[in-house]
């Protein structure tokens, strides 16, 4: 098998004036890889190109060494769970799975056993006989996942599989996706716009922004990039003035300001790791009472803004 499960070279896709992917170069390894990016980054476009639903305008993409466009044999080896709802509302989950299985050439006892096993694996057994239009978002995601898994593919494309699911369903789905790789040995490409969710599934990520890969590799390396950029840290508490005075003297602090009627102090720091090492002792020394402290830049958009801005803020 090819070194990468998915490779793209100068891959571009546009829809009229809108650019989906822009000269994307990437090699995604086996295992679980998280494709992370804000809305409109090109995650779904990449998945649709990889599953042969659309074709590139420029460049090329290969999935397990093969071109996916009009390659129906490749479909035996891949499973796709889209980010949109593709389930017919007037059917039961069981009927949907039987239909998907039959389209993959499975039938009779084999099909019955596959449906049973897959439904058990994804935790969909209890609601399989109910009408799909009565399903919660979490149930729908499980059913879509079962549809993608039914023919036991080597590689799974899961586009935003956690979107719309409640916190418990999210937690269960994350465990399920990890199990699919660890126990069933599927290679998985999973997309999300929430970095922390991807982090709970895998350490291998690719960050997409405006149709380009802006960082990829082990999450700690990407985090390293993130940690090098100035952070805005919000501190909520009382007796903050003394702390502010001490902080401004530190060489890793760029600026200190207040907002929200002086309720919150915003500290811009150049070296977040040094800040987090020393803040506890500074709080103690100044007898500041801190209610809450968080980095405003832990959200993905701030990371992208930093990385695409070449480190300038």
């Amino acid at each position: 098998m090819n070194e990468f499960v998915v490779s793209a070279r100068n891959l571009s896709k546009w829809y009229g004036d809108v650019i989906g992917l822009n000269s994307l170069n990437i090699g995604l390894p086996r295992g679980i890889t998280g494709i992370v990016g804000p809305n409109g980054a090109g995650k779904s476009t990449l998945f649709k190109l990889a599953t042969g639903m659309i074709k590139p305008n420029k460049g090329s993409i290969t999935v397990m060494g093969e071109d996916p466009w009009l390659n129906h044999d490749l479909m035996k080896r891949i499973g796709f769970c889209p980010d949109y709802d593709n389930l017919s509302d007037y059917s039961t989950g069981k009927r949907y799975l039987y239909q998907v299985g039959a389209l993959h050439g499975s039938r009779n006892e084999e099909l019955k056993q596959r449906v049973k096993k897959t439904a058990r694996d994804v935790g969909a057994r209890d609601f399989l006989n109910k009408d799909i239009d009565t399903y919660s978002q979490g149930m729908r995601q499980r059913l879509k996942l079962a549809g993608a898994l039914l023919h036991d593919p080597d590689l799974l494309f899961l586009d935003e599989p956690l979107s719309g699911a409640d916190p418990q369903a999210r937690k269960d789905l994350i465990e399920l996706i990890k199990d699919l790789h660890e126990e069933k040995e599927h290679d998985i490409l999973v997309s999300s716009h929430v970095l922390s969710e991807i982090e709970r599934m895998t350490s291998e990520i690719a960050l997409l922004y405006k149709g380009r890969v802006i960082a990829s590799g082990d999450i700690s390396e990407v985090r390293g990039l993130i940690d090098k950029h100035p952070h805005n840290i919000v501190i909520d508490g009382v007796r903050k003035n003394a702390l502010a005075k001490r902080l401004i003297d530190q060489n890793y602090v760029v600026s200190v300001g207040f907002e929200d009627n002086r309720r919150k102090m915003i500290v811009e720091v150049e070296k977040p790791d040094e800040f987090f090492q020393q803040i506890a002792s500074l709080v103690n020394q100044t007898e500041t009472e801190v209610f809450e402290m968080y980095s405003r830049d832990d959200n993905l958009q701030a990371v992208f803004d930093y990385l695409v801005g070449g480190g300038k803020r």
């Binding site: 042969g52 639903m53 479909m75 891949i78 889209p82 593709n86 017919s88 389209l103 993959h104 549809g147």
Partner: peptide, 10 residues
């Protein structure tokens, strides 16, 4: 979009 599972069938 229910055509998706047909398009991704072999």
């Amino acid at each position: 979009r229910s055509i998706t599972h047909v398009l991704t069938a072999p």
